[in-house]
């Protein structure tokens, strides 16, 4: 079975003054139809850049320096601007972090929905308004007919993010890149919006790349989890297995932080030290300065991805197939 989306050896560089910084380094993963792939990692790990690259929206100084992005069997990273635009919003849609700023403040939400549908779908204006009305009702906006005429500022943050979801789903895309879709919302509405996203995807068989730094969101919504660290993919596998018995020491650290995450507001993890930035790369395994299992070769040799159970882990401890450490207590 060929996957809906395949990212192969993606490399994204950032042109800085005299040199090129590597923001994404040799990242590969795939998303089958209808799957929710959670992508986690500390802030600055490269989650958003990866999503942006898939959408074909990288902007100077960032650019794709290597690898391929294949969607439904066709390479899309080398499409011309117009072909990629036609795909965006139609086949691959996006939901960004901040619903307060995602909508054009001078346009009614109905007009924004209609405009998006008329751009991509062979329907007339009246049909588009009908669909816009249905969509608002579906995402749970009260009095949808009146709300079509509302401006974004007249809606609360949670309502606006529901509108953003309606916009993402309005052309029935196959894949949604959701970059921290609930992070900016009130804790009390985060779960509602996440449930809505899950439900709409399940009903339509839409796949999602769900970027978050909230392990709680992952546990709740993701079929599989990809863990990113310093621009690399360090582990990817089924959610249950990652939660139960992560192979990579970094992932284990993330998992250990879940109980505190539940209280929110707490830091993502308790691993001492900080993640290397693109302008100060670390030789060998990028995690080795913080790793409690560090070995000599970790300092000089970069581990490739090794099979560990149903997961892949980029860690020398997983080289021989054994999970790196004991399951979490």
């Amino acid at each position: 079975m060929s996957a809906l989306l395949e990212v192969e050896n993606l490399r994204v560089e950032i042109a800085a003054r005299a040199r090129r910084l590597v923001a994404i380094d040799d990242v590969s993963f795939s998303i089958p139809e209808g799957e929710v792939l959670g992508v986690v990692g500390e802030s600055g790990a490269g989650k958003s850049v990866t999503g942006t690259a898939i959408l074909g929206l990288l902007e100077r100084p960032a650019y794709q320096a290597g690898g391929r992005i294949v969607f439904r069997g066709n390479r899309i990273d080398n499409l011309d601007g117009e072909a990629m635009r036609a795909l965006r919003g139609r086949e691959i849609a996006a939901v960004f972090q901040d619903p307060l700023t995602s909508l054009d403040p001078l346009m009614t939400i109905g007009a924004q929905l209609v405009e998006t549908m008329l751009t991509h779908l062979p329907i007339d204006r009246q049909e588009a308004w009908t669909r816009a009305h249905r969509l608002l009702a579906e995402v749970g906006i009260p009095a949808p007919r009146e709300r079509l005429q509302s401006y974004p500022h007249e809606l609360s943050g949670g309502m606006r993010q529901r509108v953003v979801l309606a916009l993402a789903f309005c052309c029935e895309p196959k894949l949604i890149i959701a970059d921290e879709p609930t992070t900016a919302l009130d804790v009390s509405i985060q779960a509602q919006v996440l449930d809505l996203l899950k439900r709409m995807c399940r009903e339509r068989g839409t796949a999602v790349m769900l970027v978050t730094h909230d392990m709680g969101v992952i546990a709740e919504a993701a079929d599989r989890v990809a863990v990113m660290y310093a621009g690399r993919l360090v582990e990817i596998g089924p959610t249950s297995e990652i939660l139960r018995a992560a192979a990579h020491p970094y992932t284990q650290g993330l998992m250990a932080s879940i109980p505190t995450m539940r209280r929110r507001g707490g830091d993502l993890l308790q691993i001492p030290g900080s993640m290397p930035r693109p302008d100060a790369p670390v030789p060998g395994c990028a995690f080795h300065p913080r790793c409690s299992h560090v070995m000599d070769r970790c300092r000089s040799e970069r581990p490739s991805s090794f099979v560990s159970g149903a997961s892949l882990a980029a860690c020398w401890l997983a080289e021989h197939g054994a999970p790196a450490a004991r399951p979490r207590p």
């Binding site: 959408l55 635009r85 036609a86 919003g89 996006a94 960004f96 909508l103 916009l167």
Partner: peptide, 9 residues
Amino acid sequence: RFAKARGLR
């Protein structure tokens, strides 16, 4: 940015 992600012309 979101308008671009919506694939508008």
